[in-house]
Nucleic acid binder design. Sequence first.
DNA 1: GTGAAAGCGCTAACAG
DNA 2: CTGTTAGCGCTTTCAC
Lengths: 353, 353
Amino acid sequence: MEKSAHITLDDIAKKIGVSKVTVSKALRGHPDISKETTKLVRKVSEELGYTPNYMARNLSSKRSNTIGVVVPKIAHFFFSAVIESIYDTAFHNNYEIILTVSQENSEREIKHIESLLAMRVDGLIVSITQQTRDSAIFDKVKKQGIPLTFIDRVLDIPGTSSVTVDDRGGTFQAIEHAIKHGYTKIAHLAGFPEINIGLRRYQGFEDAMKQYNIPINSDWVIYGGFGEEAGYRGFMKLYNSNNLPEFIFAVTYPVALGVYAAVEEVGLKIPDDIDIMCFGNSDVNRFISPSLSCVNQPTEQLGKTAVELILDQIKNIDTFEPQHIEIPTGLLLRETCTNRGNNPFRKIISVEI
Amino acid sequence: MEKSAHITLDDIAKKIGVSKVTVSKALRGHPDISKETTKLVRKVSEELGYTPNYMARNLSSKRSNTIGVVVPKIAHFFFSAVIESIYDTAFHNNYEIILTVSQENSEREIKHIESLLAMRVDGLIVSITQQTRDSAIFDKVKKQGIPLTFIDRVLDIPGTSSVTVDDRGGTFQAIEHAIKHGYTKIAHLAGFPEINIGLRRYQGFEDAMKQYNIPINSDWVIYGGFGEEAGYRGFMKLYNSNNLPEFIFAVTYPVALGVYAAVEEVGLKIPDDIDIMCFGNSDVNRFISPSLSCVNQPTEQLGKTAVELILDQIKNIDTFEPQHIEIPTGLLLRETCTNRGNNPFRKIISVEI
DNA sequence: GTGAAAGCGCTAACAG
DNA sequence: CTGTTAGCGCTTTCAC
């Protein structure tokens, strides 16, 4: 008797005196098997502490009931919220998720996708790294016939689906709001134009400025990244030029936080001396002072849609047509870029530990 | 020719004219096989776009090279940071992680663990939900001989390991710091005493008060939860009692944020009217105003240690002795509970999008 | 209703 | 160095 001898179908079968096929069918509720037998099988397998072996099951059935997910980061409000939604949706559909994290490293991304393929996931959801340029690995995925849906960070590969946020429209809304708030001297800390979100958010900015006939001051469009540092340096550049705009639109919330730090450092005040909004919400936005108005990304919908899309494709592998879904955004107005001293939006919402 | 016919060892073997065993060995770099054959095999399998089938591999080798992880939440600074560290460490050790999220729901937790067992993970790392009381599922894990390590949220089960933060010592440090800062009227918003972190942090508070001979005012020890709401209500209770303490120690950072909101609402100022620290860092802490001093949890070390522990046990399954490792904490001093107006700790640190 | 046979793709032992 | 033989535990025909 081995220490950790796993119970198998055969063990149960022998104990009852039927064949393992019967047990297998009974456990899966196959209509072939009589109610009584099924009941007995269930009871005995419970007693024996039977745990099915998915490896074996998947090997013979050629399906894994599993979706592979690749994201660049996890310790970030946007991604962790999306991932939570992915897990939730998968759970309700009786699918397993295998999550991998590329750490913004494209080599790692490739390795993870390779692993996921080797695990024979039924479908793949991926949000690419900032450095991903080569699409060879995704061609491999396609060649193996594994459904692929991109989420937020997208590569344009025929035959794949995508779920994105309406970056352009969302940014347009924000800039429009600022303009209607009375601002015309508007700066944009814009990330990098090579990254799709950077480009699209810039386009939204441009759209709005054009529509309202406000000339874009090229000194006020500053590239440099998506992190706090970029925000800090971006603001300092504006400050040192002695030609400060009235309003800054930050491409991400970390960029906005960098601006907050810089503004405080030089002794100015938000929103009196310089006002600001950004793309993307986080729990920080609500609690910094003044609380930060932003374009809200519907993270829950993003994750849910991606999973539903991939499940649809898995289940209708032959007829499925790739889709590109763009989720609309909304504005989340708080203390910046509003006239509210005491902001009604700044409510207490429960956050678990 | 099927659409997505996966390439198998046999396909490669036939193409070259060797047996599939040779191919299998060559691919795994087995010393049996000659350099030339290995090279050839590698080349051909590359050409054919071979992807190994882990299901089959694991089934026959009885190992999965996979660690299962169960956490209660993911969209939370502490957990997402720990998870990132778990992934990182596993990656460097050539192990896969299968992450599941229980959403603080113990039924879901059980289902996930069952799935992970069925996937035949080589080991399990779990952080239990707030409602987990029943240990039956963990007994099952033990019975199947799967190494189990708890992380942060622990159940006391013989034969399992744990990695925790020194909640008690960390809290002691914080309270001691407050006392040395001159405070004697000290309150504690303490979560729930039934949850291990709640209890241990309270004990640390008690330790410090006793050591410095400061009587504990029972009106100033307030239970109610670990979220923002609890902080909000807790402060309001203190405020309405007309006997405000000088300092509050919050059991988590969301609790502290709730206090911030409440303090602002009643028109008081932190740290002048009431000072505060909390257990646990987050990116919020640094950016709220005033920035929030806290007990720092070494998330990276936590994750790393847990993985190393479980790998140790996997590799030395017969000789391994369960360990209980407590990671020491440190104080992260910022603007609250210090004399710094302009806080040197409040630096710009890069945060990716 | 039930079961025998075959095989999923791979690896482990052993033989040559 | 290479290959043969035997499964891993399960599901899928297809016959009874």
